[in-house]
C-alpha cells in the first residue's frame, strides 16, 4: 500500500548564523489523517523542526539543507505571500502558553469571529454563529457565555480550547500542537488530548503532537519520532517504539514511566475507575 503523506521532511538541517547546526538531517513523514508525535527534551530540536515546517524559525536561524513538502508544495522555497495563504489556512498551530496569543483587552469570541471574517469571508452575523458552533465543538460549555469573556476570565484549559478553535477556524488539514498541554493540569490535559483525538477522527485533521512526555504522545499518536541533540534517534510506529525501543535514550524515557509512573501498578492491577 502506498502511503499518502500530507507532509514529509527529508534531511532537514537548521543552522545558526555562525553555521552551527541545531537540527541535523531530520526526516519524518505524516500520513493524511494520521498523528505523529515528536518527543524530546528542551534543546532536542523538536520545536525547531516544527518551526521550520511552519516557516517561523527564531531570528538568526535558517534551514540550511533538506526539504519540507506539504501536499506537493516545497515549503522551504516559499515566499511570504504564499506562506500567508498556507499558514493558518491549511497548516495551523497551537503552542504552550495560550494566553500570550490572545489580545487581553478583546473578548475571546470577538477574536475568533474576527479571524473567521478575515480567513473565510463570513459576514459579522455568520461569523458569530460559526464561533459559537466552534466553541461548542471544542467542548466549551455555554459557548454564548464564553464568547463574551476576556482571556483573563478563562482557565488555562479553556484558553487552549479557544486557541484550538481559532487554529481550526479556516479548517486546516494539518495542526501542529507544540507542548500545547504541558502547562495544564493532568485532568485538563486529558480533556485537550481527547479533543484533539476527536478532531482527528471527526474531521480527518492531521496532527503533529510535540511533547517532552512520551506518554502524552503515545496517548493519541500512531507514529513516534524521538529526538535528542538535534538528531532523530528513533522513529517508527508508536507500538514498535514503545515495545521494542532500539535507542538507549528511548529506553530511559520508557523506564521513567515503568519505574515511577502508574504503569508500575498496571502490570499487577486492573484499574477500577
Amino acid at each position: 500500500m502506498v502511503r499518502d503523506d500530507i507532509l514529509s521532511v527529508t534531511g532537514l538541517r537548521v543552522v545558526t548564523r555562525d553555521g552551527d547546526p541545531l537540527v541535523h538531517d531530520v526526516s519524518l513523514a505524516v500520513e493524511r489523517g494520521g498523528a505523529l508525535g515528536i518527543v524530546g527534551e528542551s534543546g532536542s530540536g523538536k520545536s525547531l523542526t516544527c518551526r521550520s515546517i511552519l516557516g517561523i524559525l527564531p531570528p538568526g536561524l535558517r534551514v540550511d539543507a533538506g526539504t519540507v513538502t506539504f501536499d506537493g508544495i516545497d515549503l522551504t522555497g516559499l515566499d511570504y505571500r504564499s506562506w500567508q495563504g498556507l499558514r493558518g489556512n491549511r497548516i495551523s498551530a497551537v503552542f504552550q502558553d495560550p494566553a500570550s496569543y490572545l489580545n487581553p483587552s478583546i473578548t475571546v469570541g470577538k477574536q475568533l469571529s474576527e479571524v473567521l471574517r478575515v480567513k473565510t469571508g463570513l459576514s459579522r452575523r455568520a461569523a458569530h454563529a460559526r464561533s459559537l458552533e466552534l466553541f461548542e465543538q471544542m467542548g466549551l460549555r455555554e459557548p454564548a457565555h464564553v464568547y463574551r469573556q476576556y482571556p483573563f476570565e478563562l482557565s488555562g484549559g479553556m484558553l487552549q480550547r479557544v486557541l484550538i478553535a481559532i487554529a481550526l477556524s479556516a479548517d486546516p488539514e494539518l495542526l501542529i500542537a507544540d507542548e500545547a498541554t504541558t502547562a495544564l493540569d493532568v485532568t485538563v490535559q486529558a480533556e485537550v488530548l481527547d479533543l484533539l483525538e476527536d478532531l482527528r477522527r471527526d474531521r480527518g485533521l492531521t496532527l503533529i503532537l510535540v511533547s517532552h512526555d512520551l506518554a502524552v504522545v503515545s496517548q493519541i499518536c500512531d507514529h513516534v519520532v524521538v529526538m535528542r541533540d538535534g538528531v532523530v534517534v528513533e522513529s517508527g510506529t508508536a507500538d514498535d517504539v514503545l515495545k521494542r525501543p532500539q535507542h538507549e535514550y528511548t529506553r530511559s524515557l520508557i523506564e521513567h514511566h515503568t519505574a515511577y509512573g502508574i504503569e508500575k501498578f498496571l502490570a499487577e492491577e486492573v484499574l477500577d475507575v
Binding site: P58, W83, R87, G88, I91, V94, E114, L163
Partner: peptide
C-alpha cells in the same frame, strides 16, 4: 520577536 513569528502560525484577524 519569536512570539510575533509564532503568531503568524496562529490565524489572526487584522
Amino acid at each position: 520577536k519569536q512570539k510575533r513569528r509564532e503568531l503568524q502560525a496562529v490565524p489572526h484577524g487584522a
